[in-house]
Simulated scan of single mutants.
Amino acid sequence: MTKHKIYIMSFASVYPHYITKTERKGRTKTEVDEIIRWLTGYSQEELEAQLEKQTDFEIFFAEAPQLNPSTALIKGVVCGVRVEDIEEPTMQEIHYLDKLIDELAKAKALEKILRK
C-alpha cells in the first residue's frame, strides 16, 4: 500500500504555514510551538531539532516523546473529516495538529485548545 504523501512531507516545510495562518489572526509562533509541544511531548529544543533535520510527518510523530493523553478530547472536523473517526494513528495525529492550529487561528483561548 502506498503511503499518503503527507507522511513523507517534511514537517519543517508545513510549519511556516502554521505560523503564517495563526499570525494573520493575531496569534504568535510561541503559541503554535506550545500547541505542538503539548500534543507531542517534545521540548522546545527537540522541536527545533526536528525542524532542522527536516523530519517528515511520519517520523515526526513516531519520534514524539509522548502524545498527550488528552488527545481523546480533540473533536471536530478538519478538511471534511471528523478527527475522532480517523482510524490510522499517524493520520489522526496529523489531523489533531491541524485541528489545534485551526482553533488557535479562530481565536479560541489557549487554555481551551490545550483542553485544560
Rank of each mutant, 00 (worst) to 15 (best):
M1V: 15
M1L: 12
T2Q: 14
K3L: 15
H4E: 12
H4F: 11
I6H: 04
Y7Q: 10
I8A: 10
M9W: 09
F11S: 06
S13Q: 13
V14F: 02
Y15M: 01
Y15A: 04
P16M: 06
Y18E: 05
K21F: 10
K21Y: 08
K21I: 12
T22S: 05
T22L: 07
E23G: 01
R24D: 03
R24S: 11
K25C: 10
G26F: 03
T28K: 00
T28L: 00
T28P: 00
T28G: 00
K29W: 01
T30F: 00
E31L: 04
E31G: 00
V32T: 09
E34C: 10
R37Q: 14
R37S: 01
W38H: 03
W38Q: 03
L39V: 14
T40I: 02
T40N: 00
T40G: 02
T40F: 06
G41C: 02
G41D: 01
S43L: 12
S43V: 03
E45D: 07
L47P: 02
E48Y: 03
E48R: 08
A49Q: 13
A49E: 14
Q50D: 12
Q50S: 05
E52V: 15
E52Q: 14
T55V: 11
P65Q: 10
P65G: 02
P65K: 01
L67C: 12
L67G: 01
S70H: 11
T71E: 10
T71R: 14
A72W: 14
A72L: 14
L73N: 07
I74T: 11
I74Q: 01
G76C: 08
V78I: 10
V78H: 01
V78A: 05
C79R: 03
V81P: 07
R82I: 07
V83I: 09
D85R: 06
T90I: 14
T90M: 13
I94E: 04
I94S: 02
H95Q: 11
H95C: 03
H95L: 08
Y96R: 13
D98C: 09
L100T: 03
L104Y: 00
A107P: 00
A107W: 03
L110R: 00
E111F: 01
E111T: 14
K112Q: 13
K112D: 13
L114M: 08
K116W: 08
